[in-house]
C-alpha cells in the first residue's frame, strides 16, 4: 500500500496555497474553476450585477445591494473553466541519482504531488502518468480532492528503473489525451533532445499547454567532484575513470549547451520551462515559477 503522505509535504502546501495556478490560455472545462472562461459562470472574479430573476440561485444574490436599495441583484462572475492537467513524471533510472536529502525521483514526485494538491484544491482535474521507456502507471484526470491519493499511488508504484523514451511516451500521451489541457512534464531530460522535441511538438499540435519542470540534481549542475573517480552510467553500461575536475569545464560546457538548446526550443514552442535543483527548497521553486507565470499572464491581459 503506497504511502500517500510520502510526497506530500504540508508546510510546502501551506506556503503555496495562496497562489493560483493559472493557465496561460483559457481552456475549456467542465467544472467551474478559477480559470477564466469566455462564458459567464461561477467564478471568483466579479464581472457585473443584474437584476434577480426567478430561478436564479439565491447564493448569488448580492444581499449587500438588497440591503441598501431593497432590490435584489445577483452577481455575475466571469465564468472559470475547469483545468484538465496531466502530470507526466519521469521515473526512469536516471532519476534515481541524488546526493542530497532527496534524489531527483523523490523531488519530482513531491513536486508533482504539490501541484496536484494545488490543482485539486481549485477543483481542477488532475491526472498523472509515470513513465520511463513507456507509461508505467496512470491516474485519470479527476477533480475530486480525494483524487490526490490516486495520483500519489500512481507515482509510488512506478519505481525508477529503465531508460527514458520520451518520444514514445509523449506520443502515447498525445494519443491518450485527446482533449486540450495542460501537460506538466517533469523529467531530467537526459535523453536525445530531438526525440523530446518531437514528442513535445505532438502535444503542442494537440493544443495542450505544456509546462516543463526540468529536475536536475545539484551535482549534475555543478559537478563538484574531485579526486580520482569512477563514473558508472545509471541508464547505460558506460563507465569512466577520471579526474573529475579536469573534465568539469567540458562537462559544464556540454550541459550548458544542452540546456540552452532545450530552453530555446521551449521558448520557440511557447512552453513554460523551469529548471529545478533538487536541493532547492520546493516552495522556492514553485513560488518562483508561479510568480513568473502569473507575471507573464498579467502582461498579456
Amino acid at each position: 500500500m503506497p504511502d500517500s503522505k510520502r510526497f506530500f509535504h504540508p508546510e510546502t502546501i501551506r506556503r503555496i496555497t495562496r497562489l493560483e495556478l493559472r493557465a496561460r490560455h483559457i481552456v475549456e472545462g467542465f467544472l467551474s474553476g478559477l480559470h477564466r472562461s469566455p462564458y459567464f459562470g461561477q467564478s471568483i472574479e466579479f464581472l457585473q450585477h443584474r437584476e434577480y430573476a426567478p430561478g436564479d440561485d439565491l447564493r448569488h444574490v448580492d444581499w449587500k445591494v438588497w440591503a441598501r436599495q431593497d432590490r435584489m441583484y445577483v452577481k455575475q462572475y466571469e465564468e472559470d473553466t475547469n483545468l484538465r492537467c496531466h502530470l507526466l513524471v519521469d521515473v526512469s533510472a536516471s532519476m534515481q541519482y541524488g546526493n542530497g536529502p532527496l534524489n531527483k525521483y523523490d523531488y519530482e514526485c513531491t513536486l508533482a504531488t504539490s501541484l496536484a494538491y494545488l490543482l485539486l484544491r481549485h477543483q481542477d482535474a488532475v491526472g498523472c502518468l509515470a513513465f520511463d521507456e513507456q507509461v508505467r502507471s496512470q491516474a485519470p484526470a479527476r477533480s475530486k480532492r480525494t483524487h490526490l491519493e490516486t495520483v500519489v499511488r500512481s507515482l509510488s508504484v512506478a519505481e525508477p528503473r529503465d531508460k527514458t523514451r520520451l518520444d514514445r511516451v509523449l506520443k502515447n500521451a498525445a494519443e491518450m489525451l485527446p482533449r486540450r489541457g495542460m501537460i506538466v512534464l517533469i523529467s531530467d531530460f537526459l535523453v536525445d533532445l530531438q526525440t523530446v522535441f518531437q514528442g513535445l511538438r505532438m502535444l503542442k499540435h494537440r493544443g495542450h499547454e505544456v509546462l516543463i519542470f526540468h529536475v536536475l540534481d545539484d551535482d549534475e549542475l555543478d559537478f563538484p567532484f574531485s579526486g580520482p573517480t569512477r563514473f558508472e552510467g545509471l541508464e547505460t553500461v558506460d563507465h569512466l575513470n577520471c579526474n573529475p575536475r579536469a573534465l568539469r569545464d567540458g562537462y559544464l560546457e556540454a550541459l550548458q549547451q544542452f540546456l540552452t538548446e532545450l530552453r530555446r526550443h521551449c521558448a520557440q514552442q511557447n512552453f513554460d520551462y523551469s529548471l529545478v535543483r533538487t536541493r532547492q527548497p520546493l516552495d522556492v521553486s514553485l513560488v518562483s515559477y508561479l510568480s513568473s507565470r502569473m507575471g507573464t499572464r498579467r502582461i498579456r491581459h
Binding site: 508546510e11 510546502t12 506556503r15 549542475l221 555543478d222 550548458q256 535543483r277 532547492q280 516552495d283
Partner: peptide
Amino acid sequence: PSARVGGVPPRAASTRRAASSPFVGSGRGE
C-alpha cells in the same frame, strides 16, 4: 560556470536561504 548553468542559482546560494528542510525556503520568494 556552474553559477550560470541553467540560469539557476548555485546550490550554495540557495542553501544559504534554505532552512533545514529541502522543501521549505525562508519565504523571500513568497
